[in-house]
Design a protein around this nucleic acid. Structure first.
Lengths: 133, 133, 133, 133
DNA sequence: GTGGTCTAGACCACC
DNA sequence: GTGGTCTAGACCACG
């Protein structure tokens, strides 16, 4: 994973989103260990406080849990995991429609463009693993 | 048009985007006058400086031009106008794909969701005209 | 002559400068008639008030004079004409030095560039008359 | 550095030009930190917003860059730095030629004037260091 | 009336 | 502390 310091999206939000994506994609087993806060901060070269904030956010949302001084783990609650996936999809679709609606483009043209772009990416990344964190 | 002060997207960016959408939708003739900075500020109930900033941005991008102290106008350059539409569409599609890609959803499911959402909106707004307020 | 509405230099100043240049270049005889204010405004497609302001400025500086309802004329005072020339040259040189000084470029390099540019222009305009008002 | 509030040239443009000159003169290392917007505003006794505007301009031109909320830095792109110098010189020479051309002064007279003025300034400033204040 | 700049002061989120 | 945005209000010159 890489973090972009210049985007308007705060770094800690980017981190949270990244984990959500990994969970939604099924790249994490329920209960699986995730890197410690310090470790993540080192990997991404971000401030430990930022990592801490991201983890705190995820804990509050029930995505991860921490027992005592052990490393944090992905939630074991299957329902939460399913919700994350839906949430991400709905958010993406809504944002897309909102941004494209005022332009008055026929929905079929749109679908064409998306399929095109999608297969183009598939072609470029075939064989790559999905988890490039 | 309405402006949302609470979004992360700066007001002046919202204004720029709104004009781009209007141009892309064909609601502006090349060379057409647009409201003066003060007038726009009154309409949107924003500060004249914010309007000024939006217009400056548009001027730098070649979307509008100003001769002397006359009110600004939409560019007469048809090429620019054509590009705006494409740019908006490509940006939207790219952002969408980028946000949805890591989740590994089959493209056909995606298309289904989009069409669904799209027609739902169509149903709610049928009969509305394309006002340029 | 052409006037640029988008420069920071006010239009009326551009007009004044243009006449000064013509005088300095010797393209006007002392006492020669110049276009009426209205005529000039038509030629340059500027507001008559702007033409008026330019002429007023020139009268105050003693460059032109007007007798009754007759067309204005270039001053007959040879000394004024000589001064204009010197003034323009000194202004130009001063502005140039001021802008180039902080960069620390050897004066000989500078002279080389100027000569180069100068002859380049000469080549492109040979045969042209100087008065393209 | 000093800023002149009474010149026609806007303050923020003066600031941008000053940094360009410093870069062109080699007084800044690539990647070197520059004062924060607030600090610069204090130094020059201008409003922080004016400093902000100057920095934004420089950022758009690729002269400086900002990572997250850290102080901005001079670009590390050597090409950009090289271009700045050339750009400043060419602009100055072009402006000079444009202003002096219509007067029809022999190029050798011009060179004489420049050298004269140049050495005169050298005499007055010999011993000064290249401070970057 | 127009565009343009500047100041003063406030607010926000991020780190 | 940093960058960034916004408001409010003033001023200027141009046309």
């Amino acid at each position: 994973m890489k973090v972009n310091l210049n985007k308007r999206e705060p770094v800690y939000v980017q981190v949270v989103r990244h984990f959500k994506e990994q969970i939604a994609a099924g790249n994490y087993e329920p209960g699986q260990e995730i890197p410690s806060r310090r470790e993540l901060a080192n990997q991404l070269k971000i401030n430990p406080n930022t990592a801490q904030r991201a983890y705190k956010e995820m804990e509050e949302q029930g995505l991860i849990f921490t027992e005592g001084n052990n490393p944090s783990r992905i939630t074991k609650d299957g329902k939460v995991i399913g919700t994350v996936r839906e949430e991400l999809i709905i958010q993406a679709v809504d944002a897309f429609i909102t941004s494209i609606r005022p332009i008055n483009i026929p929905v079929d043209d749109l679908v064409g463009l998306i399929k095109e772009k999608y297969t183009e990416i598939e072609r470029n990344t075939r064989g790559d693993s999905n988890d490039r964190s």
